Amino acid sequence: MDPWGLLVTSVSFAAFRGLHWALQLLPTPGSAAQDRWKWRNICVSLVHSLLTGVGALLGLLLYPQMAADPIHGHPPWALVLVAVSVGYFLADGLDMLWNETLGQAWELICHHLVVVSCLSTAILSSHYVGLSVVSLLLELNSACLHLRKLLLLSHQAPSLAFSVASWATLATLALFRLVPLGWMSIWLIRQQHQVPPPLVILGGTGLVTVGAISIALGIRILVSDVLRSRPHSPIPGHKETRGTRGCCDGELVTREDSTLSLQD
């Protein structure tokens, strides 16, 4: 057990809880005033995704040994990055339980439990840190997801900014979510003789869970943002009014509220 990793996890938990509290003192954009908590929660998630996602990408570029030897090869700061992420997921899970019912948050709570269980293995054993850093590449896609959600809450859909965010979300989902998940799955299959069976089961469960949710999320975004947003020929005798446009925009926001926004 690495006491340094546990200390960083605790500090990270306190820091993200403090950020949640601090955002309550700042004004919320008028367009998102009806859902202040969700706005603050996603802003904190965006900070975490940018911090850990960019950190993981730079870390793997500067220290490729983490990918070559995901079990033992890592610099000391890599463990800090993983611990920061665990602290965030614990803080975010507590924030959701405090502000939402279990029925509303159970999908993300289950997701957070799986992620914390997998990442905590690296902190408690000081092994598999490189593998954990590779998994943090998914946060680059999560950053786009959070930005897209903030635009939805601000009623900026449809707009050029929302279209860019949607396409960036789909591109990073393929590059920084599905590719790392595929790489980790292949690595786990090939190296299962070096990994204890309980960790194989834990890692396999996490990869299957996050992979399935990621594919489903990508399909939802593709359908809602790309396929359904294509212009259609006007229906004879139908005249679009301001009221009908507002109804469609509201439907998009409502539909997206029910879509799982991954924060891993």
Rank of each mutant, 00 (worst) to 15 (best):
Q104K: 13
D95H: 02
L60T: 03
H72Y: 14
P75D: 10
L58D: 02
G55D: 03
W98I: 04
A68E: 07
V84N: 00
M96N: 10
Y63W: 15
L97R: 15
G93M: 11
L58K: 02
P75H: 14
P75G: 11
L81V: 10
P76Y: 04
L90G: 03
M96T: 04
A91G: 06
Y63D: 12
G87C: 11
Q65W: 13
A67L: 11
G87D: 03
D92P: 05
N99W: 10
G53V: 02
A78T: 06
L102P: 01
D69Q: 07
L57D: 03
P70Q: 11
H72P: 01
P64G: 14
I71K: 13
A78C: 11
P76R: 09
L79N: 11
D92L: 05
D92Q: 08
V84R: 07
Q104N: 08
G59W: 05
G87W: 14
L97S: 13
G87F: 12
G53Y: 08
A67I: 00
G55I: 01
G53I: 07
G59Q: 05
L81K: 08
G73M: 11
L81N: 02
F89I: 00
V54G: 05
G103F: 01
E100I: 10
L90P: 00
P75M: 10
V84H: 04
M96Q: 08
D92G: 00
L62A: 15
V80S: 09
M66W: 12
L58R: 10
F89H: 14
V86R: 11
L62V: 06
G93Q: 13
Y88Q: 04
G103D: 03
T101P: 07
Y88V: 02
L62I: 09
P64F: 11
L61F: 12
G103R: 09
L97M: 13
G55C: 08
G103W: 06
L94H: 07
L90M: 13
H72T: 12
G103K: 06
G87P: 05
V86Q: 03
G103V: 07
S85W: 08
L102M: 08
L97G: 06
Q104M: 01
V82L: 05
V82K: 10
V84I: 14
S85V: 00
N99F: 04
V84P: 04
V84L: 13
W98M: 08
V54P: 05
L90R: 09
L57K: 06
E100Y: 14
P76E: 01
A78D: 00
A67F: 03
N99S: 09
A83N: 03
D69K: 14
L97N: 04
I71W: 04
H72L: 13
D69A: 10
L94I: 07
A78E: 04
G103E: 00
